[in-house]
């Protein structure tokens, strides 16, 4: 188990030719594969890319996309930036929280004419309502 995890990380590094400048792409790939970049993954990546562990963990912690611990359930990414605020994203966020979703705040999904905007996995929802988000969460199960 641990071995196959390590080899998936090594494969991600190899796919990008062990290039340090591809670190962010590698972190995306690893997070996609295992849901997070834990300390062990960071250690393997640092080793393969000839970076220090501090370098890798520093990059991991800088970018909000990367997390050190996997989420227990699929988060509802909700835009809390100005264009969505103007059409009630704060109210929607409160409703989604009451409905028991795990919310993740995003600043802009590029759907600013059709807000409030929400994203579930890679699926963008425009003119989002609690009902439409719930329906999409059902589909991703």
């Amino acid at each position: 188990m641990a071995h196959s995890k390590t080899s998936a990380i090594e494969a991600a590094c190899a796919r990008h030719n062990h290039r340090a400048d591809a670190l962010i792409e590698i972190l995306h790939d690893v997070q996609h594969a295992q849901g997070c970049i834990d300390d062990e993954a960071a250690r393997v990546i640092a080793d393969k890319l000839n970076l220090s562990r501090a370098d890798v963990q520093g990059v991991r912690s800088f970018y909000t996309d990367f997390i050190a611990e996997a989420r227990r359930k699929t988060p509802v990414k909700i835009c809390r930036a100005e264009a969505c605020q103007a059409v009630g994203s704060d109210k929607l966020a409160a409703a989604l929280e009451t409905a028991g979703h795990d919310l993740e705040t995003i600043f802009c999904l590029g759907n600013c004419a059709l807000g409030p905007a929400v994203m579930v996995e890679d699926r963008l929802i425009g003119r989002a309502t609690a009902e439409r988000v719930a329906a999409q969460m059902e589909r991703t199960k």
């Binding site: 400048d21 670190l23 962010i24 990059v59 800088f62 909000t64 996309d65």
Partner: peptide, 25 residues
């Protein structure tokens, strides 16, 4: 190249750092 959720990486010098695989400072 993909960003990773950092607004400041739209600033050109932070973007360069990010393209080099570093923190977007």
């Amino acid at each position: 190249r993909r960003g990773a959720g950092s607004y400041v990486c739209g600033e050109e010098s932070a973007m360069l750092e990010s393209l080099e695989g570093k923190r977007g400072q």
